[in-house]
């Protein structure tokens, strides 16, 4: 996907902007490609770039001193990341790692902020994006504090199934554990319990969601 006004206007930051207002924007971006496992930005970095996922899936996570991962989200096409490092004075708050072949669009803070000063709709969109990211973090705190592991695993399955073909990513039990803040063995037991309850079917390398309503209730989504 080339960096064009049409493609950039699909990102939340630039949605609703008249194409003419975005005319000079593609030149401010650079395109980068990453392979599976490559770090795009690391926690503590001084990078003040804003990153957009053009293609592929990016793991956004924090690492404990003992080396345990807490996955905050899987960023998919259209999502941005490193926003806090761009709009505050601190270093990068998390690590972003490509989960497979990934295309990223990058714009520097020194290019983005002057552009936003002249385009208030884009500035408003940025506020909306930051608010959505705060909402996501609050939901994560709620999930980790108040939901049991099976409810958290149910939510991960629902979100992954709903990601659509562009954002499809096959999940390992390790990744599910790092998202649900638990051990891999516990994820395995949760999957078995969900299968025994008839909510899912484990079909070798596929998890088939058979009873979405039940998973919705477990995940607190209904």
């Amino acid at each position: 996907m080339a960096i064009t006004v049409e493609n950039l206007s699909k990102f939340r930051y630039f949605k609703g902007a008249e194409p003419g207002r975005l005319a000079g924007l593609p030149q401010l971006f650079t395109e980068r490609t990453y392979q599976k496992g490559q770090a795009i930005v690391s926690e503590g970095d001084a990078s003040q770039n804003l990153y957009f996922v053009g293609a592929g899936v990016v793991k956004i996570f924090k690492m404990s001193p003992e080396g345990k991962e807490q996955i905050i989200k899987l960023a998919r096409p259209g999502d941005s990341f490193n926003d806090p490092a761009v709009f505050s004075s601190g270093p990068g708050p998390y690590t972003a790692q490509a989960m497979g072949a990934t295309t990223i669009y990058v714009i520097g803070k020194s290019d983005l902020l002057p552009f936003m000063e002249k385009n208030w709709l884009v500035a408003g969109n940025a506020l909306e994006e930051l608010a959505e990211q705060e909402r996501l973090l609050l939901t994560l705190v709620e999930d980790l504090s108040f939901k049991n592991v099976t409810g958290r695993v149910a939510k991960i399955l629902l979100q992954n199934a709903a990601a659509g073909p562009e954002g499809v990513h096959r999940l390992t039990q390790y990744e599910m554990a790092a998202m649900a803040r638990t051990a891999r063995e516990v994820v395995g037991r949760s999957l078995k319990a969900l299968e025994d309850s008839g909510a899912i079917k484990l079909d070798r390398h596929r998890i088939v969601i058979v009873n979405k309503e039940y998973l919705d209730r477990l995940a607190g989504l209904s």
Binding site: V168, R170, R206, I207, V208
Partner: peptide, 14 residues
Amino acid sequence: TGALQCPFEVVFTD
């Protein structure tokens, strides 16, 4: 070491 992985595809229907 994470050398072996059995990733799952998650789908809504069969």
